[in-house]
Structures are given as C-alpha cells and as structure tokens.
Design a protein around this nucleic acid. Structure first.
Length: 269
DNA sequence: AAAAGGTGCAACCGCCAGGAT
DNA sequence: CATCCTGGCGGTTGCACCTTT
C-alpha cells in the first residue's frame, strides 16, 4: 500500500502526496506509524503530523483515527447501563451535542455515543412508532427506560432495587428525571457547564442532578455513591401500564421492554 | 447452504470557528 | 482587513458481520 517511509516531512504537502492520499479502513501498519509518531512527538498539528509520520492520510483522518480508536484511554466495548443512563439524561438536556456528552463519559468518544444513539435509541423510537424527539418518546425514556436502567444498576451493584420503590411515595408533582446535568468520571467544567449544573440542580429541584453532583471523585463508582432514593415520582410502571403522559403508545403491543433490553448491555458481557 | 435483510461501527464529508499570516 | 489553514463538530455513508428466511 505504499507506506515506504520515504514521505518527506515538509512544511507543505507535496503534490505527490496530495494526489496519493489514502482513504478507507486503516491498516495495522498505518496504526503503528501513527501511534509511534504520537508516542514520540505528541499529538496536534495533524496535517504536518500526517506527513512527518509518513502517512498518506489527511490530518483529519489521522486525528479521527487517534481520537476514536488508537488513543490509549479510549474505552471500547458495550455501553454500560450507567453510561446509557447518562447518555439519555444528557441528550435530553443538550440534544445532539455529542462531543459535549462524550466529555462526561471518560474514554467514550463522541462518535461512539452518536452511534449508540442512532443505532439503539432511535431504533427503540422506531419500535414505538414515534419520533425520537417526540414528547411521547421522551416520556417513555423518563418514565420507563431510565427508571429501569437505574433498577438494573442497583441490582447489579448489589444493593436492593427495592429501596428505590420504598421511597416512591413522593409528591406527584415531582418529575423524573428533570433536566439535570450529570457527570461520569472526571468533571470538565466550563463556565456554561457549571452554570447549567447549578441552575438545573437547585432551581428545578432536580434530585437526579443533585444526587449526581455529590459525586466528585472522578471514579466510575459515581453511581453507587449517588443517592437516587428520593428521585422517584411513582412506582415503576409495569410493562403495559402507561405512565400518565405516555399517551396513545401501545407499549404492550410494541413489546417495549423486550425491545429495550434485547439489544442492550447483555451482549458479550 | 445460500441469499436477503438488518445491524453496528469505522470513517468520510461538509461546514464552521478561531488563530495565523 | 482579508485570506488561508487547522481543528473540531455533527451528519452521513459504506461495509463487514450477524440473523433470518
């Protein structure tokens, strides 16, 4: 494939290299070249990096390959229930701000989260025959999917999920989960972020966000330290029992729960 | 066993913002 | 001030793999 290492490390791309840029899947040799070069020279200046490393790739392509795949701290494999919950929550607040969401999930890339959303979440929406941005689907997420995720996480962590139910005699005015700002792992606060956290947690009385904000240790144990026991507006609905706002969705017919879990974190774990 | 269809993910594309010249 | 370059982002596509028929 022509990676002969003779590519010159010049300030500007040669015509020869410009006309011979590779596309498509990366080879092992290319990966090694990129990793070795970044290992000794660091990342950044992607266009010149590509040339200096002897890669017949665009700087963009190198950057993407590094960030999404080769970076040592990139976390691969199934999205955990904790991460799913966080993605759902953050997306409800920020929409398709994938990179921003990814900042809250250490090791996960924006590309991965975006793919997760498109392949899993949108698929559930299709099964429910509604738009992923519709109120109906958002209600399903809040009243069914996310509580179930919490329940599963609780169960998996060894603490009884029933403790959640024991605290559900909450005022009916309480919404779950409101638009909280949550973080997983290292917090990367920007001015707008911190403002968002404070306002969302304190003004809206969002117990979810409050619970999350108590966890600042940057570890993946955030969930076990968070206290969600006061977060539930009502007993978790059973499949087929619609929460108030779920409208006309026929959840039984859709097999929503089967749909939710059939493709989730059970794969390959 | 083979074909068809579905799914998930890596990679590319176009656009935009910010800095350098 | 205008232009160019680079990096970053979200949307989209292509394809390998898996499942179903």
């Amino acid at each position: 494939m022509g990676l002969d290492g003779r590519a010159r490390c010049s300030a500007t791309p040669t015509r020869e290299l410009e006309m011979d840029l590779r596309k498509g899947p990366w080879t092992v040799e290319e990966d090694l070249l990129l990793m070795n070069y970044i290992g000794s020279h660091g990342e950044g200046k992607w266009n010149s990096l590509a040339r200096c490393a002897g890669l017949r790739r665009t700087g963009k392509s190198c950057r993407l390959r590094w960030l999404n795949y080769l970076r040592p701290d990139v976390r691969r494999g199934n999205i955990t229930p904790e991460e799913q919950l966080l993605i759902l929550e953050l997306h409800s607040r920020w929409g398709n701000r994938w990179s921003k969401i990814a900042q809250r999930l250490p090791g996960r890339t924006d590309n991965e989260i975006k793919n997760y959303w498109r392949t899993r979440v949108q698929k559930h929406a299709r099964h429910l025959r509604c738009d992923v941005n519709s109120k109906q689907f958002k209600d399903v997420m809040r009243h069914l999917w996310m509580p179930r995720l919490v329940e599963r996480i609780r169960a998996a962590s060894g603490s009884s999920a029933t403790c959640v139910h024991q605290n559900v005699a909450a005022p009916s005015t309480r919404e779950w989960p409101a638009e909280g700002s949550v973080e997983l792992g290292q917090a990367k606060t920007s001015p707008d972020d911190s403002e968002m956290q404070l306002s969302s947690a304190s003004e809206s009385g969002d117990c979810f966000a409050n619970s999350m904000q108590g966890c600042e240790n940057g570890s993946d144990d955030w969930f076990q330290e968070a206290d969600f026991t006061d977060c539930w507006p009502q007993p978790l609905p059973s499949p087929g029992v619609c929460a108030d706002d779920l409208g006309s969705l026929d959840l039984d017919e859709c097999g929503w729960e089967e749909s939710l879990w059939s493709m989730e974190d059970v794969r390959g774990e």
